[in-house]
Design a protein around this nucleic acid. Sequence first.
DNA 1: GTCTATATCCAGATAGAC
DNA 2: GTCTATCTGGATATAGAC
Lengths: 197, 197
Amino acid sequence: MPKVTEEHRKGRRREILGAALRCFARKGFHATSMSDIIAESGLSAGAIYGHYASKDDLIRGVAADVFSPVLSELRSAPALPEQPVHPVDFATRLLEGLVAAVGNTAILVQVWGEAAVDASVRELFDTVYAQVLELNRQHVSNWLSATARMPVEAIEEQSLQLARLLTGLAQGGIVQTAFVDGFDVRGYLQAARPLFD
Amino acid sequence: MPKVTEEHRKGRRREILGAALRCFARKGFHATSMSDIIAESGLSAGAIYGHYASKDDLIRGVAADVFSPVLSELRSAPALPEQPVHPVDFATRLLEGLVAAVGNTAILVQVWGEAAVDASVRELFDTVYAQVLELNRQHVSNWLSATARMPVEAIEEQSLQLARLLTGLAQGGIVQTAFVDGFDVRGYLQAARPLFD
DNA sequence: GTCTATATCCAGATAGAC
DNA sequence: GTCTATCTGGATATAGAC
């Protein structure tokens, strides 16, 4: 199989996934029909089913697609002990990057809802959550190590607690970005700065 | 119309709503069929449709039902300037009360997802959000007024920012309660205490 | 108000030509 | 790979007896 074909295939899949995402974002998973997605994509039923086996398959694809920007952000944000970044700045970068990448935060909230009932979406959530929490923990730990005079065990414990807080703050930021017009993520997070100083 | 009848009617509606809620919590809105709800309720199709006009009607009913504990909590938690409560303690009470009342936080996340695409559920969300934010703001403001030496305008501004933070923290707490086994809401929020001291 | 039985429709999914 | 045309099942919702 020639190279072009393979790339075309991937492109088609992205096209279809994009159409599905727009429909889901607009009407939600249960109110969106395959016909909606077919119409939105400008393709035909056959074309869709040639790439995705079912509606559930599309939902999972979209869910994965929505989570992937988070993971990319994470990968581009290693926690370096040598150059500690203020945890709030880190979280701001992560959250702003995510919002920019996903564009539509409403779909993110919907995917959370799906994660609550679908095992495979749940797995995606768990993976991302674990990584976010761990990276937050590392950043907090690095920061406290560099700036606070505390015994190592205290830092360990504090870091985990503060990482959970930071993670929750980010999640709440996503909810408010989705539902509050003109919500200012940056200002929102800045208010948490004193926690780490 | 005699009194008993009216009460019976209400009871039946609650029964049906309870069955619907259990189904939705288990399988989600789109994977739950009316047959599922009918079976879960132990009643018949006719009985259900005698009380709720459609599946969407049930979804909205469940959404309202899920939000109502939040509102009850709010009503039972007035913000008194004379006896300021530490904002974290207030938020803890609110969140623990909510978690206890709803029982199933997974359904809450799903309702958020629905709010992202259904106007009438969205309205419910907006109402609750506005009230939570305002009550948080009042509590923070009272607390800062009593404990911090700041000019009034600074308190006003700080209060709103911190209220948004507290609200986001609560939302993140709901997400983590829904998805993290054995998540300790109380400990989670306590870590935010320094923000107000 | 509730039941059983059933109508109706449209969803998701496929077949086969090109 | 994609299209058109179509199947099939199950979903929502109703009718009419009790």
